[in-house]
Simulated scan of single mutants.
Amino acid sequence: MRYDLIDLKLFCDVVDAGSITAGAEKAALALAAASTRVRRMEEALGAPLLTRSRQGVTPTEAGRTLLKHARTMLAQSARLKEDLGAFAGGMSGEVRLLANTNALTEFLPEALSSFLAAHPQVSVDLEERLSDEIVGLVAEGVADIGIVAGTVDVGALVTYPFRSDRFVVVTAADHPLARRPSVSFAEVLDFEFVGLERSSSLQRFLAARAAREGRPLRLRVQLRSFDAVCRLVECGVGVGIVPQTTAARAVKTMALGVVDLTDDWALRELTIVVRAEAELRPYARQLVESLRA
């Protein structure tokens, strides 16, 4: 069997994405080229690595074995690149960081900008995921660092406090809820929503919470940013759920009502999660230190 690093990275990307098409896009390969690589890997092994269905692909037992070793080899390759980078005039490499919606939109832009300015030879691969997904991917070694809601079970991962924030309801200034000091999520479900794209981790989380209440989340429009959500809420399109930091910024320029959510999950203690600190590469360790600061 001859698998190069491109093959191994592609296979990991395909499994993580759940489809060859999405995996090929993530690996920056044409779909035909990616499909050919996967097929040749299976031919070289003499056994299928993926189970294919209309819903996507999942690894077979052989695929799970390959996935485990591929992630180890890719991590070792990245560590080798970093160690040799010191002889080429400084640190060079990439850190993979996963974060939930709140951390990604409200806190990471400023935190990452200072780190990247201080480390011009390091790049950060940042991806948005649900908190429980992040914990699993960090534990498996798919990502170096994760930022998750403090309520999620992190298992044996090492944790550090990051930031605190709270989700609130934003409404148009003349909306019936605007006069309320607080409201439960179940009550908010009586109204139509302005939300983020369905693929965003927050929107998936809210849809799951609505399902627990036995109610649909009635989305009238999906947007790409919290600020855009606030603008349409101001125009009376629907209500929105955004971080308190976003609402405090928006009310300075928009006519909005801001209502506290009474649900326990509305308070978001954001936490940094990593595997054992000794396993972190130097630039990943420096990023953790920067985020904590």
Score class of each variant (00 low, 15 high):
R2G: 08
Y3N: 12
D4H: 01
D4V: 03
D7P: 10
D7N: 11
L8P: 01
L10F: 07
D13Y: 05
V14T: 08
A17W: 06
A17K: 12
A17S: 09
G18R: 03
A22C: 03
L29I: 15
A30D: 15
S35I: 04
T36P: 15
T36K: 15
R39G: 12
R40G: 09
E42A: 10
E43K: 14
E43G: 07
E43R: 13
A44N: 07
T60S: 01
R64C: 10
L66V: 11
L66Q: 11
L67A: 12
A70T: 11
S77N: 12
R79P: 04
L80A: 14
K81F: 06
K81H: 09
D83M: 14
G85R: 03
A86L: 15
A86V: 15
A88N: 13
G89L: 06
G90L: 08
G90I: 08
M91P: 03
M91Y: 04
S92C: 05
G93P: 04
V95H: 07
V95C: 08
R96T: 12
R96M: 10
L98N: 00
N100Y: 02
N102L: 13
A103I: 08
T105E: 06
E106R: 03
P109W: 10
P109L: 09
A117Q: 12
P120K: 03
S123V: 12
E127S: 11
D132K: 14
G136T: 11
G136S: 12
L137W: 09
E140H: 09
G141T: 02
G141Q: 01
A143L: 01
D144E: 05
D144Q: 04
G146C: 09
G146D: 09
V148C: 07
G150F: 01
V152T: 02
G155C: 00
A156T: 13
F162H: 03
R163K: 02
S164Y: 02
S164M: 02
D165I: 06
R166N: 05
F167H: 03
F167A: 06
V168E: 00
V169I: 04
P176F: 07
F185T: 11
F185A: 08
E187M: 06
D190R: 06
F191L: 06
E192P: 06
E192G: 06
E192K: 05
V194I: 05
R198Y: 09
S199L: 14
Q203G: 05
L206A: 03
A207Y: 01
A207P: 00
A211F: 14
G214V: 09
P216H: 14
L217N: 00
R220V: 08
V221L: 02
V221K: 03
R224C: 14
R231L: 13
R231D: 11
L232Y: 07
V233E: 00
V233N: 00
G236Y: 10
G236M: 12
G238C: 00
G240D: 00
I241Y: 01
V242A: 02
T246M: 02
T246H: 00
A247T: 01
A247S: 02
A247K: 00
L256V: 01
L270R: 12
V273K: 00
A276D: 12
P282T: 05
Q286N: 11
L287D: 07
L287K: 05
V288R: 03
A293G: 13
